[in-house]
Structure formats: C-alpha cells, structure tokens
C-alpha cells in the first residue's frame, strides 16, 4: 500500500527493489483558457494538501469513506496536474513503473471504463519516468485537455458525459512495477555499464451526487505527448499493483471536513501571464507519442458544457497571449506568494 508523505503518495515495492520508490503529488496550477488554442504547460504552484479519507470518515459521505484512499480540496473550475517522481536506486538508474489513471473511473488515456491490469492496444497507462506528468485527458496526439474540477452531478465530467451517471468522481490510480526478473536484468545491465564506465574513468585523467465531491471535466487544450511504453506488456507485474482512490472535496467544504483552511484560489491565466511569469514547453521523444482517444476527443469541454447549461461563458475563459515560454526538463515548479483575488 502507498504511504502519505509530505502531501505525496509514495509507492514502494521492496520485494522487487528495496532502494526505489515512486511518488505522485497533485500540483495546483492555472486553468488554461478553454478555447481552440493549444497552450504550453502552465506552472506547478505547489502541492495540494493530501489527507487520509479515513481520518475524516464521520464528516464525509459514507460511500466516500468506504472507498478509503486520500482526499484533497479543489475549487470549482480549478485545474490540477499530476506530478510523477521516480526515485531509483541511483541517480542514473530509474525504477520504471506503469501508472494507470482514471477520473470518475474513466481511463484518462483511452476513455475506456476502469479495469484492473494493463492493456497494450490501445495502451491504457503511462510509464514513469518516460512520462514526467499528466495534465489531463489524452484527446489527440500531443494534445491533452486539462483536468478541471467541477461539482459531481452537474454533467461536466468525462464520467457523466460518457456513462450518464455521476457515481464515482475523483481520481483512481494504480501503480504497477516491473516483474522482479525483468527489473533485476535491467539493474544488472546498468551495473555492468557503470563498471565499464568506471574502468574508462580509471584510464582517463578525469465523487457521487454530493455537491461536496468534485469530478474532473476536460478543460482547455495543452501540448503534451503521452509516451509509449518502452517495455513489453508481459514485463509488468500486474499482481503486484497498488491502487488508491482519490476523492476531490470541494474547496468550500474542506474546512468543515478537515478543520483546515483550503488553499487560496490559484491565479487566473491572465493574471499570471500579465505578471510576466513563464509557461513551459517540454518535448519528449514524441515521434511515437500515442494518438489520443477518439472517445475523449468527442467530449464537450467544461467551457462548452457551461455555455450549454447556463448560456454564459465560464469565467476567465478568454485567450491570453503567452510571451514567456521556458523549455523545461522534468520539474516545472515555481514558488509563489499569495494569489487570492
């Protein structure tokens, strides 16, 4: 089972490798405008606070408490990205894991209903460290639609658009390590390579029906490749999978549930951009990036749905002119002060 450490979910598989771990945290960010434009990566503004659901079971709906896992607060129309940190036994040796992510039990990569195990055609998971983060639903090759929180039961989420039900909300995550023999072979190859390098160095001189629960709707378009799995499907040890249910609690209810204040509203894309702060670009080995899901491509974005439901535009939906784009290695976090309106 994962542990909760400094607002990260930390997965360890000591039976396979004692000196490795894989951590997931949920980054606060700007909501990118929900338009035809495709935006660069918005920044990470710090982790959402994560708490054990069971610690607040008396103040959560019974079905939420029974799902276990963790809770964190999101305001309506707030965006989020999922940060992956792969901590291998050495700086030069990652510990690959397959990560399956669903929102409202709709797979964020394929749009299919949640199921255990891994599927290859189409690939329904991402692999860390190849995939450094996930910002939303994979709708096209190199394009995702940002995860945007909307109240469960108001028809915005992928789950509600695809199933007609508002049963689950939240996020569902499963992490799968390599089989021990596959990992051991990878580690041994690395150790042989390291020994060879050292020799050379020696020679050289040198949620459901409750307004409290939030679900994730597809928001604005963002450049992001979903990297293909470099391993064989059979290399993964699906029997060793760990999973966790993440319930999203509406920001307005967070204090009632936990006694703690919810984080402030994040800045709007306009405020952030006008302050001259950077957006980020990241290009992986995206020649072979996955094509995105036709099912997810057909969904209405949060902005489009808001117009249908209310006749009004979602606030802060106007395009912004991004002037500062910084190429980034995995890590796109920036320190911020207070941004509350």
């Amino acid at each position: 089972m994962p542990t909760l450490e400094h607002d990260s979910l930390v997965f360890r598989f000591p039976q396979i490798e004692e000196e490795a771990s894989f951590a997931i945290d949920f980054q606060r960010t700007l909501r990118i405008p929900d338009s035809d434009e495709t935006y660069h990566l918005p920044p990470g503004l710090g982790r959402f606070p994560l708490r054990h659901a069971e610690d607040y079971s008396t103040r959560l709906p019974t079905h939420t408490a029974s799902r276990g896992g963790v809770i964190f607060p999101m305001w309506q129309a707030e965006a989020m990205w999922i940060d992956f940190r792969n901590i291998g036994p050495d700086l030069e040796l990652d510990f690959p894991v397959a990560v399956k992510i669903a929102a409202g039990k709709i797979n964020a990569i394929t749009g299919d209903p949640w199921r255990a195990g891994l599927t290859r055609d189409p690939q329904d998971y991402v692999v860390s460290p190849e995939q450094p983060w996930l910002d939303g639903y994979a709708v096209e090759k190199d394009v995702i639609r940002q995860f945007v929180a909307m109240p469960l039961g108001e028809c915005y989420s992928a789950e509600e658009q695809l199933t007609g039900e508002a049963e689950w909300g939240g996020l569902q995550i499963s992490v799968i390590p390599l089989k021990k023999e596959v990992w051991s072979a990878k580690r041994a190859a690395w150790e042989r390579g390291k020994a060879a390098l050292q020799e050379r160095a020696d020679i050289l001189p040198d949620m459901a029906c409750m307004s409290m629960e939030m679900s994730l709707a597809p928001g604005g378009r963002m450049h992001q490749a979903i990297e293909p799995d470099p391993f064989e499907l059979d290399d993964w040890d699906t029997a060793a999978a760990d999973r966790v249910f993440v319930t999203l609690v509406h920001g307005k209810d967070w204090k009632t549930v936990t006694g703690e204040p919810a984080p402030e509203h994040p800045p709007t894309a306009r405020m952030y951009t006008e302050a001259g702060l950077p957006w980020f670009s990241h290009y992986g080995a995206d020649q072979t990036a996955l094509p995105g899901s036709g099912t997810l491509r057909g969904l209405k974005s949060a902005g489009a749905m808001h117009e249908i439901l209310t006749g009004a535009s979602l606030p802060d939906s106007e395009d912004v002119e991004v002037k500062v784009v910084v190429p980034t290695e995995p890590r796109r976090l920036i320190a911020t002060g207070s941004w509350d309106k």
């Binding site: 089972m1 994962p2 659901a53 408490a65 276990g68 966790v244 249910f245």
Partner: peptide
C-alpha cells in the same frame, strides 16, 4: 503518525 501510515484501500 500520518507519515508512517499506509493509505487504506477501500471498496470501489
């Protein structure tokens, strides 16, 4: 105490 506790899985 939170640091050393596992995240409990439930029914879903």
């Amino acid at each position: 105490l939170r640091i050393v506790r596992d995240v409990r899985d439930g029914n879903w």
